[in-house]
């Protein structure tokens, strides 16, 4: 290929492509913690999050992305969690969110 300087590249698609995502890890997480599927996206976890109030950390968004097979950066994000447990206290579905933070770190350390 010739090296033409176009001054721009081709943007990568932002869409979550369920077909090309590898859902095995996501399925494993759901098998170990089926109650995660009961999340109704209320945002209580993020609202009460110690870390989320001071950083970009959005617990709900990260674990929703993990369920869709988007693992990139999830481990690093979960490192922001201070494990205070407030999110578990407020979750109306009784999801073990604190445990979920640990589970994601355990499963997705190398993504």
């Amino acid at each position: 290929m010739r090296s033409i300087r176009f001054g721009y590249g081709i943007s990568k698609p932002r869409a979550i492509d369920i077909d090309s995502n590898d859902l095995r890890k996501s399925n494993e997480i759901l098998r170990e913690m089926p109650e995660l599927q009961t999340c109704i996206g209320c945002g209580s976890c993020t609202a009460s999050c110690t870390a989320g109030n001071l950083t970009q950390f959005n617990f709900r968004r990260v674990h929703t992305l993990v369920r869709r097979g988007e693992y990139m950066g999830a481990y690093e994000e979960m490192n922001k969690c201070m494990l205070c447990g407030k999110c578990r206290l407020v979750c109306p579905r009784g999801i073990n969110t604190r445990g979920l933070a640990m589970l994601i770190k355990r499963k997705l350390g190398d993504f």
Binding site: R14, A15, I16, I18, D19, R61, T64, L65, R68, E70
Partner: peptide, 15 residues
């Protein structure tokens, strides 16, 4: 199909 996964704020597609 195409939709937005509004809880992650990203478009989503699948077959």
């Amino acid at each position: 199909i195409k939709a937005e996964d509004t809880l992650t704020g990203r478009p989503l597609k699948m077959s």
